[in-house]
Design a protein around this nucleic acid. Sequence first.
DNA 1: GTCTATATCGGGATAGAC
DNA 2: GTCTATCCCGATATAGAC
Lengths: 216, 216
Amino acid sequence: MAAGKDTEQKILEAALSLFRERGFADATMRDIAARAGVASGLAYYYFDSKDAIVLAFYQRAKDDLAPALDAAQESPKLADRLAALVEAKFAYFGPNRRFLGALMAHAANPASPMSPFNESSAEMRQFDIAHFERAIEETRTSVPRDLAPHMAKILWLYQMGLLLFWIYDRSPHQRRSRELLDATLGVVVTLIKLSNLPLLKPARRSVLRIISILEG
Amino acid sequence: MAAGKDTEQKILEAALSLFRERGFADATMRDIAARAGVASGLAYYYFDSKDAIVLAFYQRAKDDLAPALDAAQESPKLADRLAALVEAKFAYFGPNRRFLGALMAHAANPASPMSPFNESSAEMRQFDIAHFERAIEETRTSVPRDLAPHMAKILWLYQMGLLLFWIYDRSPHQRRSRELLDATLGVVVTLIKLSNLPLLKPARRSVLRIISILEG
DNA sequence: GTCTATATCGGGATAGAC
DNA sequence: GTCTATCCCGATATAGAC
């Protein structure tokens, strides 16, 4: 049991370090097992597949990120909090950027267990969205009643878009991603402010209809 | 020569039919060669890799789609043309929807040769964008000078989003995708109209800044 | 140039002995 | 819970028939 947990951790560590060094595809299960100092078959005892190791990585990221995301909830301004939440992820995932790139192969397909839109990561996603809810509430950002139940999800999606861009951003230190964050943040916050105008009720209805279709 | 072209076609057909039946990953090169009635080695004579078959499929799609996309350029209204262009793709790719799902694995990564955002499909992308340019021009849609050079690309991107949703749309006959098309079309056309208001010059500047970052 | 046949290798995954 | 042996497949290479 204890040995089992240890071995599992050893394998996970070996996998992640190899993923970081070589990317996902070029790290073989044999390499992973070798680095962990176990037989290659044993890796499959702890992880159903190479993909399953990735799910363990997600789970771990969720746990590791929690304190950083709490620390991002400081400013009284929504824009600052959004920026801080995104930057916290840039910082944490920075060393794994290349590896995440390989993962994105599955991201678009919501049916893939490795997609952040899949059932299997629902818990993680919910955890993540909760941070946006908190940012909206604590900064007393006014959101129209009809949009309110969806606003955190919208911001989460906005963040996912930024992360996607960041993952494939080849500019030095991902400078362009920071620019994009900077350039879009103002637009996002402005749109939220505008969305409160009673005049824009029809526009909100259009958006709500689109959301309801997207959520199926 | 003639025989060679024939064999190549036979292999391509066999590959596509297997991709449609089983998806990309579960169709092996041995299966493909077997269905084409040739030795498995021969498939590699014509296609460098399994991936190369996909590129051939893209190329072929481009050629096949041309007449349908021309036929979509009828209505004097931009919204109708956009809908027709998207529907033409739904129709053509319909039988390959599942197979396209497997391909999307590479789509997010602009560095992958199989991504529609990659260099290697620049020609196809340009061909595709040209249809949106034509739709804008022929419907005499007024677009502000500063946005004009980018509008066709924006519409192309909008279409790609719809296609992405459609590929993974599990509702019967992809009903939700049609709803999404319907729900977003109005918004898109309205936004283009609004973008002409001189008052919105600052908003256009924000959008232009974002575009310039995205294009790197 | 077109095609068959075969051999070899690396890598994900599995079965079964211990 | 751990290891060894094995399977399957994609990819590559090669020898040779026509």
